[in-house]
Amino acid sequence: MRLAVISDSHDHVWNTRKAIEQANRLGVQLMIHCGDMVSPFMLEEFDRFNGRLHLILGNNPGDQILLMKSVLSRSDRVEFHGCFGRVEVLGMSIAFIHDPLEAGHIARSGDFRLVCFGHTHRWFMEDMGGTLLLNPGEILGRKEQPGWALVEISDAGNVDDIRPFRIERIFVDGSV
């Protein structure tokens, strides 16, 4: 199964649109946004995504009331998790939060195989004793080249495998 991990789009419509087009072309089934989407109108861009979107708030939450109303009208394809999200994919627990310090604490708990975060606007990946800590960088393109993480999860049936997934950094300009 393929999932996209993105963060810190900060209402950059064009880069978000490119990332969604890439995710659709690559057959991504699930997208996790690690916060700072900001404006509810951005959900219209995410309506273009063919899969299911999991969304959390960041430190720039924008209009939370309008965001909630917009999410509720899309409840079949968008799940809003508040400030902390978790999903199970092929028996693997994945957590996502915006704050990097909290993400590190969650990763060290050993309760999840993958912990994703945002906020720093910088790509980061570290194996923390069986838990992978991942920041997909930023969609905005302010601190580094805009991009996201493609996570391919194997369906080998062995969730104890140290690397049940493959991570690829995708840039919105099309380079890898």
Rank of each mutant, 00 (worst) to 15 (best):
G104P: 00
D99S: 02
R122Y: 13
D111E: 15
M125C: 03
V115Q: 04
H98T: 09
D127I: 08
G118D: 09
L114M: 11
S109I: 08
F112R: 04
R113V: 00
M125R: 13
G118T: 14
S93T: 04
H98M: 13
H119A: 14
L101A: 06
M92R: 15
R113W: 02
F96W: 09
R113A: 14
S93D: 09
G118R: 12
R108L: 07
E102V: 02
M92Q: 14
F124E: 13
M128S: 00
E102K: 14
H121Y: 07
A103F: 12
F112Y: 12
S109H: 05
S109R: 06
D111P: 00
G129Y: 14
M125Q: 12
A107Y: 11
R122C: 11
P100L: 13
G118L: 03
F124V: 07
D127F: 04
G110W: 02
L114K: 12
F124K: 14
D127M: 05
L114R: 10
I94R: 11
P100M: 11
A103T: 11
S109K: 04
G129W: 15
L101S: 02
C116T: 01
I97Y: 12
G104R: 13
A107F: 11
F117S: 11
M128P: 02
H121T: 05
C116A: 10
W123T: 03
M125S: 09
I106T: 12
A107P: 04
P100F: 09
I106S: 08
H105C: 06
M128T: 07
D127V: 02
L114G: 06
E102Q: 11
G110T: 04
R122G: 02
W123M: 00
P100K: 08
C116Q: 05
F117K: 14
C116K: 05
M92N: 13
A107V: 05
E102L: 15
I106R: 01
G104E: 06
M125N: 07
R113Y: 02
V115K: 06
V115R: 03
R113N: 05
M128L: 15
F112E: 01
R108V: 02
L101P: 04
I97S: 02
G104K: 10
G118M: 08
H119I: 05
A103G: 06
S109T: 15
I94L: 13
C116E: 04
M92S: 12
T120Y: 14
M128C: 12
D99V: 10
T120R: 13
A103S: 09
R108S: 08
H119E: 05
H105R: 14
G104T: 00
R113F: 01
R108C: 03
P100G: 08
F112K: 10
E126F: 09
H119G: 03
G104I: 07
M92L: 15
R122E: 10
I94H: 09
F124C: 01
W123E: 07
L101M: 00
F112I: 09
P100D: 10
G110I: 00
H119W: 07
T120F: 12
G104A: 08
R113I: 00
M92Y: 15
T120Q: 09
S93P: 13
F112H: 08
F124M: 09
H121S: 04
I94Y: 03
I94W: 05
